[in-house]
Design a protein around this nucleic acid. Sequence first.
DNA 1: CTTATTTCGGATAAATTTATCCTATTTATA
DNA 2: TATAAATAGGATAAATTTATCCGAAATAAG
Lengths: 144, 144
Amino acid sequence: MFSKACEYGIKAAIFIATQSYEGKRVSPKAISEEIDSPQAFTAKILQALVRNDLVTSVKGAYGGFEIDRNQLSSIKLSQVVNAIDGDSIYKGCGLGLHKCDASHPCSVHDKFVAVRAGLKDMLENTSLEELALNIKSGDAFLKV
Amino acid sequence: MFSKACEYGIKAAIFIATQSYEGKRVSPKAISEEIDSPQAFTAKILQALVRNDLVTSVKGAYGGFEIDRNQLSSIKLSQVVNAIDGDSIYKGCGLGLHKCDASHPCSVHDKFVAVRAGLKDMLENTSLEELALNIKSGDAFLKV
DNA sequence: CTTATTTCGGATAAATTTATCCTATTTATA
DNA sequence: TATAAATAGGATAAATTTATCCGAAATAAG
């Protein structure tokens, strides 16, 4: 469904969110250990999140990554996915056609529209805050 | 959503279906031209469909690929996808965790369950016959 | 100002997916 | 039986994704 990079990005964002809740910054090392991902690769993905203004980075000593606590509820999963994989997941044609729409549909177009709408809706209505709270309450987990 | 191989596989299966409707066999060359895909790569994917008994191949002169006309309505998109990409699309965890289920959910587990169910339902309830008829009637297209 | 710490970013490597090439095998027809 | 036509399948190459390495730039603290 998502690329590896996107999976790491989602997990990383959720972990940063849980820590930002307590006013803590986190390093790529701590993140990759927490979400069980390759460190250097994860760092690259974090850069993408920073470039898209979803995560703030602080360079130098005592630096790290954080998310503005006031934005935790307004940052949606869709923004994280979009920053890494783009919007092809729920925008592109199911069969990879360039020009596929209602007026020039591929054979599975109508079928896909509904599924895609559900995915889009899910991503756009799930906030980092909600997911971070799932983790903090012990209702969900980030690894294994 | 799907791999390139899977996209080609779906399109190829639909095209073979349209031709089998008229009792015609088709060559990998004709298929790749019709669905705009690399020929040799498409031939490999066809082999997977043959191994999974979704498509029949006839070797030698006047041979080619065909689908039993009586099975067109019973072969579902899910079988084509499964033959090529496996069932990871709607079975695997959204975050790539190995052990993710209702009793040990990842942070997005519950959200994904619904989307996946929709995708699964769509794939399992769409037959090659239905898609082939969409093409024949001119309501849908296989390329561009 | 110096130093230690930390993110940034370019270069490179490994793994996977996508794509091509060529030969073997099969089969209908003459 | 010989021949031409067609799929099967192994070997290989190209492209993309995933992953690693290392030096540059930035910053807090002494």
